[in-house]
Design a protein around this nucleic acid. Structure first.
Lengths: 211, 211
DNA sequence: CTTATGCTTGACCATGTGGTCAAGATCAGC
DNA sequence: GCTGATCTTGACCACATGGTCAAGCATAAG
């Protein structure tokens, strides 16, 4: 008893794992839809089929929930870019990255929206992450892209803006889903058509021009 | 006196115009940064150098302020696409549209972020606008793009996904400004480099391929 | 069974929020 | 100056929100 009696115990029971999981899933849903300030703890509790005090038994503050789900999301977010292989074929690698991000937008749009919300509101919680972990990774991959350019294997563009373009184009399908739906796209052909269009334009635009 | 005495008068005085203007400017700043639910009336009043009751004298509810600034923004947002000329050169027209949207992202990023926030949160206020006005315009311009494709003047892509790509790529510079800044871009060459990259890739990717 | 630990919740509180109101300050027209 | 309409605000209210707490419930080990 070195602690306040209301603190969750250090070791992880079955119930604890299940409930933390449920909370994180519910929090992702709610935070991604309303942003940090717009979301309420009661809403998250409701979505997790749990009373508010019970939720706060597992995560002591709203911010703690947010940080937990955000961290989980960021890890997922980084992964695809890490796999960009300097030794592979430029077009294969870039295309694999694009399709991977498109898949994320289709299968896990909430994660993208959570991230978008955080950035839109000035990234108050992940400024550090952006300026360190992400910047390191992006710098590294920009070097790779620049080498491909120097070797005349892809068209000469500013590497980081190519990355921005890929991020923008792929995440758009998650972040602006409502707009896309309102414009009445046939949902069955949406992603195949989008994928084909990105392939034509981005890969086409990256073809090195003979002198 | 057919009205409650607290209602602003119908005709528009000097003071009224000036104050409404100040409120809309302040509201754009605050709403674009925190979203509808995240923004507070007190914050907007503060930003407009005005007491809260005074602000509510001009706009009766928070929602009324939001709708006013949103409507003003949407009109601006539509304009560039309307100018896409079916009789012009495809590459000139598309490029003009891209540079126009890029300019908006540089000179008025708040407007883009306001819009992005609204869409991200499910577009509760502008669903109607998206499904009617915007859809009509987009359908019309898709027809134009499709004709250019049929005439073999640009590469065969799904027109609406080309539009999505342009929206995504250009608005990214406004909506994700914080992320871009955190990645340490030299702000003086940011937009020229971005513009050049988009020109290379999008216009390059749209070149019709011989057979 | 008993007991100790972990889990759950109704009731509660302090704070912040959107919005009101009545009374005072300012201004245009006389 | 005077008068009536417009503008401004301190004080206030009802309600929602993040967070607490003490007491009750479940459960696994003996």
């Amino acid at each position: 008893m070195t602690d306040k009696s209301t603190a969750p115990p250090a070791h992880s029971t079955r119930i604890q794992q299940r409930n933390r999981q449920r909370i994180l899933a519910a929090a992702l849903e709610v935070f991604s839809r309303f942003g940090y300030r717009g979301a309420t703890v009661a809403q998250i509790a409701e979505a997790a089929s749990m009373s508010k005090p019970n939720l706060l038994y597992y995560f002591k503050t709203k911010q703690a929930i947010y940080l937990a789900v955000l961290e989980h999301t960021l890890t997922q977010w980084l992964e695809p870019l890490q796999q960009l292989d300097a030794d592979g074929d430029p077009f294969d690698e870039i295309w694999r990255y694009i399709t991977c991000k498109l898949d994320s937008s289709r299968t896990a749009p909430e994660a993208s929206r959570l991230f978008a919300n955080e950035i839109l509101q000035g990234a108050p919680m992940i400024h550090q992450f952006l300026a360190t972990d992400l910047k390191t990774l992006v710098d590294e991959k920009c070097t790779v892209l620049q080498r491909w350019i120097d070797e005349r294997r892809i068209a000469p563009v500013t590497p980081i803006h190519l990355i921005f373009l890929i991020w923008a184009a792929t995440q758009h399908y998650a972040d602006f889903q409502v707009q896309i739906a309102a414009l009445g796209q046939d949902t069955s052909t949406l992603f195949p058509d989008g994928e084909q269009t990105l392939k034509t334009i981005i890969l086409g635009g990256l073809r090195p021009q003979p002198q």
